[in-house]
Amino acid sequence: MNLPQIHLPEHYNYIGAFLSLSCNLSCSYCINHLVGLDQKRKVLSANEWIEGLNRISSKTDLPISLQGGEPSIHPGFLKIINNISKDTRIDLLTNIQFDPFEFMKFIDSSRFDRSLPYPAIRVSYHPETMDLDETLHKVKILHDSGYSIGIFTVDHPDSTEATKRARDLCDKHGITFKTKELLGLYNDKLYGTYHYPDSVFQKEFKTVQCKTSELLISPEGNIYRCHHDLYNKIQPVGHILDPEFKIEDIYRQCDFYGNCNPCDVKLKNNRFQNFGHCSVDIKF
């Protein structure tokens, strides 16, 4: 098919392509499971992902983030990376359970060149399921070969010592290391900094009007306005392979305010690393 381009509104800050929602790890605090997640889904083939992602007309400072679950689980993972238009910048969010030498054999470091103040390949380090020395070894192989890569970990109260060791080792080897807020409830305490504090983990839901600043594409190619809807397969607004699809930059009714996914309503850095950004704007 010769599909028309998809043009993003100027204020869009993120493009997330969820190649798979399956994962080869199982972390107790996984953000994907906080407000429900149906992992048993069909996935687009590599050719379908390539066709769909090549429709997206994005600025050079707005990369497509390949993520999951764990994106490297997709059988066409390497093919997808290599066949996205070279004019389109890409990022990769991964737990790097793959062989870095095999990765380098097929993917050149130039594939991740872009001018943003954080690494293009962001490796999630989870102390309860991953070995730090093995993770750092793999990251260093790619880093020393010219790939834009860093290690990110959740600032979990149970992982204080592991986080300190990871930071010290990364500093020693010149690897970017950053922590991200724990989001959700832990020992009856709510963690995270939220733009809408009553939007998460409530017993009663409200109806609101919500507008997104993100393009989120599920494994089966559906496009959703937020992570809550994507994870729960609720109210897709289109499909990446639908030739008639265009982004409508509008407020949409939502009946699930109170059960928002923390990713959508937290305060965070935008892609230029300026703090205070929220993925959605909500009218009550």
Rank of each mutant, 00 (worst) to 15 (best):
Q5W: 02
I6N: 01
H7C: 03
P9S: 04
N13D: 14
Y14Q: 13
I15F: 08
L19R: 03
L21G: 09
S22A: 07
S26A: 09
C27H: 06
C27D: 08
C27S: 09
I31E: 14
I31Y: 10
H33S: 12
L34S: 09
G36A: 07
G36N: 15
G36C: 15
D38N: 14
R41M: 11
K42S: 13
K42Y: 06
V43A: 09
A46T: 04
N47Y: 02
W49F: 02
G52D: 00
S57K: 13
T60G: 04
L62A: 08
Q67M: 12
G69D: 11
E70M: 08
E70C: 12
S72N: 08
S72W: 02
S72D: 06
H74F: 04
H74L: 03
P75V: 01
P75L: 02
K79F: 15
I80C: 01
I81P: 04
I81E: 01
N82V: 02
I84D: 00
I84C: 00
S85G: 05
N95S: 11
D99F: 07
P100C: 13
P100R: 03
F103Y: 10
M104K: 09
K105V: 10
I107F: 06
R111Q: 08
D113F: 10
R114H: 02
R114C: 06
P117M: 12
Y125C: 06
L132G: 01
H143T: 14
D155E: 04
P157M: 02
T160M: 06
L169T: 06
I175A: 03
K178M: 12
L182D: 00
L185F: 02
D188K: 11
L190W: 00
H195M: 14
F205S: 15
V208N: 14
Q209K: 14
C210M: 15
C210R: 15
T212G: 13
E214L: 09
E214Y: 11
L215H: 05
L215W: 02
P219M: 01
E220Q: 09
G221V: 01
N222D: 08
R225A: 10
C226W: 10
Y231M: 15
K233D: 15
V237Y: 13
H239E: 01
I240C: 00
I240R: 01
P243N: 10
F245W: 14
I247S: 07
I250C: 02
Y251D: 02
R252Q: 07
N259P: 03
P262R: 01
C263P: 07
D264V: 11
N270C: 07
R271P: 03
F272E: 05
